[in-house]
Design a protein around this nucleic acid. Sequence first.
DNA 1: GCCCAGGTATAAA
DNA 2: TTTATACATGGG
Length: 269
Amino acid sequence: MSDHTLVFQCPPHFSLRDTFTCGQCFRFAEYGGRWRGVVGGQAVSVYIEDGRLCVGGDVPLDETAFFDYFDLAADYEEYKERLSAAHPFLRLACAHAPGIRILRQDAWEALISFIVSQNNNIPRITGIIERLCALFGQPRGDSFAFPPPQALAGLEAEALAPIRAGFRASYLLDAARLVSGGEVDLGRVRTAPLAEAREELRRIRGVGVKVSECALLYGFHRLSAFPVDVWMARAMAQFLPERLPGEVSDIAGVAQQYIFHYARTMGKD
DNA sequence: GCCCAGGTATAAA
DNA sequence: TTTATACATGGG
């Protein structure tokens, strides 16, 4: 790998480890200081060197696509300033892992990943997705692409048994069938008003308030996808028993990820 | 063994 | 409308 390498200026504080392991994506692993994963169907190796963000691949890579993937147009220093000013706990969360950026992941992959995430833990989510790709995805380098809806839509539940997804297997199949059949239109989720986008996603069995918000945030980059009420109702309620101030509601999802990572990792460094 | 994990569907109150 | 429980699996 690395016959073709994209080079970007690295944003301040950007941490590949925090970004790839904070629980927003499940397909990157570190090997010798470089992070290997599959993005847009291409195996890539990502690393930071001399203040530059490098993305190596064995085929020519689309620079615009990776600029977009890492959300390089966004100013996370400004995001963190706003969040830090909004609440003392948010300030702690931002300081704890200031290198997190919200990746602009593939919508289908994010949707499936967060269906798998329900009542589950990160190591096991990672394993299930790994097996899903290995069984049903196209080979890419020494890894596998994420299987598209069409690759899963025709399967029976027993065919998914080897990935050991448990009760979530039928949810995955429902998602694959509805999306590949057009009954759920991911293009519409991308462009429709937020409330309608939610409704569209929640037609899939196993997609409730939390999964739909995660899919909207990570798969569709709707930064405001976490309405304060949902956000409040979940894991961070124990840390932030107040409503999120309106001034940062447009980046509530960013706040959610910083807090989630803080709550999950504090004391474990 | 018991408890919990980036929840949700379903039934019962 | 709100609250309780089952759900598959596996790591701590």
